[in-house]
């Protein structure tokens, strides 16, 4: 509240430009952060509990319980790349100072959730399909997404000066975004062992409430968990850049 007073004297800046100020971002995100973690934890716990106590599927038996983590991880794998694509536009179009920070902070989190999507899917595939892995359209396109996350992590950490990798990273993210619709529609376009969409499809979800409710709660929980982790990682990245800038300043002063 008190911090607002010094701003009200001048023309009121838009919310967008307010968030462009890293110091203000640190203030706001610091307040939001604990709530985000709290709600995420409650939702994940509720979703997993409802999922593990859901009745066994008539075809898949108890392995259907893997769905309540596998599907949210798959959703996150694609959503995080989409969040990074929006951030990439922020870098290339508006030169938003936090956009590059957002991409760099999101990449490792996206890589972990994509890896978990592949691992849980593989563990589910073994008893249901009789194989850990097939090189079909859905599995391969998600594996390519995982490799792109790794490439992006390498690129954002390759250059000493943090801002330098911003443009190439943003371009890589936007080019990689073509893979997202390919993943989504791979089950419709090609023959694959993977089942087609059963939640986000024309004609509404094809799933009984006993499965749909825990799945949605779990998906919301993991999504909030991503945003909480992303916020923390972004705050850290801002601090890291300040530390780097101040260290250079200190070195220059020592020379003078």
């Amino acid at each position: 509240m008190t911090a607002m007073t010094d701003l009200s004297a001048s023309a009121k800046p838009s919310r967008f430009s307010l968030l462009a100020n890293p110091t203000r971002f640190l203030d706001l995100s610091g307040k939001v952060q604990p709530w985000l973690y709290g709600v995420a934890l409650v939702a994940v716990a509720a979703g997993v509990f409802l999922g593990l106590t859901a009745p066994a599927d008539y075809q898949q038996g108890a392995t259907v319980e893997i769905m309540f983590i596998h599907v949210p991880f798959a959703w996150l794998a694609m959503m995080i790349w989409t969040v990074m694509s929006l951030s990439a536009l922020g870098t290339l179009v508006w030169r938003h100072p936090l956009a590059d920070v957002s991409i760099k902070a999101a990449a490792p989190i996206g890589a972990v959730f994509t890896a978990l999507c592949l691992i849980t899917g593989s563990i589910w595939g073994r008893p249901m399909w009789g194989t850990w892995w097939v090189w079909d359209a859905r599995l391969t396109s998600v594996f390519v997404l995982f490799l792109m996350y790794l490439g992006l992590i390498a690129l954002t950490r390759a250059l000493e000066e943090p801002g330098k990798a911003a443009r190439p990273a943003a371009i890589l993210v936007l080019v990689g975004f073509v893979n997202i619709p390919i993943i989504k529609f791979s089950v419709d376009w090609w023959n694959t062992l993977h089942q087609p969409a059963s939640v986000m499809r024309m004609g509404g979800p094809a799933m009984p409430a006993a499965y749909l409710t825990p799945l949605l709660v779990s998906a919301v929980g993991f999504t909030l968990l991503f945003f909480a982790l992303h916020l923390t990682a972004m705050r850290t990245e801002i601090l890291r850049r300040r530390v780097a800038a101040l260290s250079r300043l200190a070195a220059r002063r020592a020379e003078a």
Partner: peptide, 8 residues
């Protein structure tokens, strides 16, 4: 299988 998926 379920325990492995959740545990990992």
């Amino acid at each position: 299988f379920i325990a492995a998926a959740y545990g990992i």
